[in-house]
């Protein structure tokens, strides 16, 4: 099962991972303290494939990539939120952490729900209450980056100009 972990609106990068832990860039090390001040039980009991469900403006604040890296390091499968802060959005895409904009799902999913997500189609199914939701489609060039597993991997094989073709 993929357990949903829910968070409130305007979740900022310090709440995801406080600045004092950002002295390392090791995903697993960062993951030990992810959400430590607002949901300390998360880092202790998250399982690979669990889903983060946030409120609007998820990931606001600093440009620090440590925040999405810490979440990716915790083995969460993806983040669902009504909207993301712009730098967090870019960072998550760039490091290959899938993010889905879906206000309906973010509103309806409760902590602990068993949620199935199809990243390719954006379909989200809540096994706990039987509801399904459709996430907003991502632009083509974003899909290209996501498909490559992040922009670094994309650039290993392609020129940057190919993003816009």
């Amino acid at each position: 099962m993929s357990k949903a972990w829910t968070f409130g609106e305007n979740l900022n990068t310090d709440e995801i991972i406080p600045g004092r832990f950002n002295i390392t860039i090791d995903p697993l090390e960062l993951a030990k303290n992810v959400f430590c001040e607002i949901k300390p039980e998360y880092a202790k009991s998250v399982n690979a494939g669990d889903i983060i469900v946030g409120g609007q403006n998820f990931g606001c604040g600093s440009s620090r990539e440590h925040a999405p890296i810490a979440i990716k390091g915790s083995q969460a499968k993806c983040i669902i939120a009504p909207s993301f802060a712009r730098i967090f959005f870019r960072n998550a895409i760039n490091i290959g952490l899938p993010i889905l904009e879906c206000p309906e799902a973010a509103e309806d999913i409760n902590e602990g729900d068993d949620v199935e997500v199809n990243l390719a189609t954006g379909e989200i199914f809540n096994r706990t209450n039987g509801h399904s939701y459709q996430a907003r489609a991502l632009p083509d060039f974003v899909l290209k980056i996501a498909d490559a597993g992040g922009i670094v991997n994309f650039l290993k094989e392609h020129d940057i100009e190919e993003l816009m073709k």
């Binding site: 440009s63 620090r64 870019r90 760039n94 490091i95 922009i151 670094v152 650039l155 940057i160």
Partner: peptide, 14 residues
């Protein structure tokens, strides 16, 4: 505009 570090590494190259 603020961006993450990965994009900075990308811009160094491109």
């Amino acid at each position: 505009a603020g961006l993450g570090s990965t994009e900075i590494g990308v811009a160094w190259v491109t």
